[in-house]
């Protein structure tokens, strides 16, 4: 099995703080992989390294066999990696539809001259883009909100819109940074169902950061655990749950001996 994404010994340092420390993760095509770890473990920083927002001090990131190191964020997106953000970062004054259209920016090629002249090709491309955007909105369940300005959407729907925007660039790998953060249980279920559909219906590989242990266990096939920037465990959900270092990282050393099986919402 060749990995779609291969993170090799990536290290990112901020001043004196090593936010990501020599981390290796391989992600197989069409898999759902979770990245977990306590707050400040370096998960978001790893995502930032993957999407070109930060340049890692050391290590290699291979996507589809080619290195992503040193590429601009838009180049990485062009390669097929898209992401969402932990603290929602939509284009606030745009409508939901426009957000998704910006997501498609890379997939539109009509020249600016043709936009001025409204050539038939450019018009056809714009129409296709709108249709695709509406399809994506329908896919995440926001078809009725296409014309709503995105800041006016409820919180949970803003998260869904971020997913739709990311899908606009037709990614093969989708990075979701705490997609269910701040959601109630039913919204979380809806989001997790969406994650499955993304993989099953669209064939997109998913790499997601999640806090909620229950969610992680139910959704992912592989789990990697970060603590203080280091990867301390990797494996199936069951393996990770049984791992003493993981429990220690989450709960502190004194509770290691407790029964970890029913620890709720780590």
């Amino acid at each position: 099995m060749t990995a779609l994404l291969s993170i090799q010994a990536v290290t990112k340092v901020f001043g004196g703080l090593t936010a990501v420390d020599n981390v290796d993760v391989d992600i197989a095509e069409r898999s759902i992989t979770s990245l977990i770890g306590p707050n400040g473990a370096g998960k978001t920083t790893l995502f930032n390294c993957l999407t070109g927002l930060h340049r890692p001090e050391a290590g290699e990131i291979l996507f589809d066999g080619r290195s992503l190191i040193g590429l601009r964020p838009d180049e990485i997106t062009a390669r097929g990696v898209a992401r969402t953000y932990q603290n929602i970062r939509l284009f606030g004054r745009m409508t939901a539809l426009e957000n998704v259209l910006v997501g498609q920016h890379l997939r539109l090629h009509a020249s600016h001259w043709s936009a001025i002249l409204r050539s038939t090709r450019q018009q056809a491309e714009e129409r296709a883009a709108r249709t695709f955007a509406l399809e994506l909105l329908a896919f995440v369940g926001l078809e009725s909100h296409a014309e709503v300005v995105s800041t006016n959407l409820p919180y949970g729907e803003q998260r869904l819109l971020e997913v739709a925007r990311a899908l606009g660039s037709r990614p093969s790998l989708l990075l979701l940074d705490e997609p269910a953060a701040g959601m109630n249980p039913s919204e979380t279920d809806r989001m997790m169902e969406l994650v499955h559909r993304l993989r099953d219906e669209m064939g997109i590989t998913i790499f997601l950061i999640e806090h909620d242990m229950k969610v992680v266990m139910s959704v992912s096939e592989t789990v990697a655990v970060l603590d203080y920037g280091e990867k301390i465990a990797e494996g199936t959900p069951e393996e990770v749950r049984a791992n003493a270092r993981v429990v220690e990282a989450y709960l502190g050393p004194e509770v290691v001996l407790q029964d970890t099986a029913d620890t709720p919402n780590l």
Binding site: F14, G52, L53, H54, G70, R72, E75, G92
Partner: peptide, 14 residues
């Protein structure tokens, strides 16, 4: 949203 571009200038890549 605050633009963090310059604040992160040291780490910004690309």
């Amino acid at each position: 949203a605050p633009s963090r571009l310059t604040a992160q200038a040291a780490g910004v890549n690309g």
